[in-house]
């Protein structure tokens, strides 16, 4: 436990600076984008009014009012969010690879430490999960800053105020913020699965050579396909109720997750090589 805590602390310390820089950049982009989209809408209304010699109300009838929900649901904004998710996934790779290819060979130090090597695995996993939740939480807060910004930038006639809930729904982001526990668990379990899958691939890559490496990685994809193929097959049969299907899906996911974690732990304990 102590080793796990020390290592998690160390990983977080190492990741803090780059992470905060990325977060700051994304926040800045969202800020700028919100202002830009908002002003663009205003611009379009004014242009329409001018070109067609109509009143604002008529322009609004044509173009509609601006809402923050539109901003968030727009392509560029979703792109930024997507970039954020990509950063997390890339971090799942980098958190391992930098220990081999960084300025120093920290992997030597990690593997030499007394105690179980599982702590290394869980420390890195914890870090990525925290980074992910960090993003999600910060994004949540950003909505509460950007929505008023949007509203502030426009004259009252031009915008409609929307609830954050509506924003989330219209942009498709409600899945990330579904506080109904079973849904929340399922969604973030998937996210965890993705991260753990990446960990498994990385650890295989770092432990085997050439041919064996490729085969084993390929095998992981085959297993992924098989597990979900079988799961979906079972679930789409007619014999089950909806919530039973949900639970079965959850159960399969848990088992597969456990399987991936076990492989990862085994690999880092016995097969990994500097």
């Amino acid at each position: 436990m102590k080793k796990y805590l020390l290592l998690t602390n160390e990983e977080l310390k190492r990741t803090a600076k780059p992470y905060l820089i990325v977060v700051a950049v994304l926040m800045l982009l969202e800020f700028i984008l919100t202002a830009a989209i908002t002003k663009m809408h205003e611009g379009k209304i004014e242009t329409f009014m001018r070109e067609n010699g109509v009143s604002m109300q008529e322009a609004i009838d044509a173009y509609g009012k601006s809402s923050f929900a539109q901003v968030v649901a727009s392509g560029p904004f979703l792109l930024i969010l997507g970039a954020g998710m990509m950063v997390i996934l890339i971090s799942a790779f980098v958190i391992w690879y930098r220990d081999w290819f960084g300025k120093t060979n920290y992997i030597y130090r990690l593997l030499l430490l007394p105690g179980s090597r599982s702590s290394i695995y869980f420390a890195k996993l914890t870090t990525i999960v925290l980074l992910m939740f960090g993003f999600v939480a910060i994004q949540w807060l950003m909505f509460f800053v950007l929505a008023p910004l949007h509203d502030l930038l426009l004259p009252p006639e031009l915008f409609e105020r929307v609830s954050i809930a509506a924003v989330l729904e219209r942009s498709g982001l409600m899945y990330l913020y579904d506080f109904y526990l079973p849904n929340f668990a399922l969604i973030y379990l998937f996210a965890l699965l993705l991260i753990v899958f990446i960990f498994t691939l990385v650890l295989i890559e770092r432990s085997y050579r050439k041919g064996k490496k490729v085969i084993r990685i390929f095998l992981q994809f085959v297993i992924l396909g098989a597990v979900y193929g079988a799961t979906l097959l079972v679930i789409n049969s007619d014999h089950l109720f909806a919530n039973e299907k949900g639970m079965l899906f959850l159960a399969f996911t848990f088992l597969y997750l456990a399987f991936l974690v076990i492989i990862g732990l085994r690999t880092v304990s016995k097969k990994i090589t500097v």
Binding site: K3, L6, E10, R14, G102, K103, T104, N105, Y106, Y108, R109, L112, L113, P114, G115
Partner: peptide, 22 residues
Amino acid sequence: PDLQTMPGHMTVGDALDYMNDH
């Protein structure tokens, strides 16, 4: 080993504390 194994940003003092902790 004949290569550096402590995390890049660390000072000598940090590294000694790290060893002491572990």
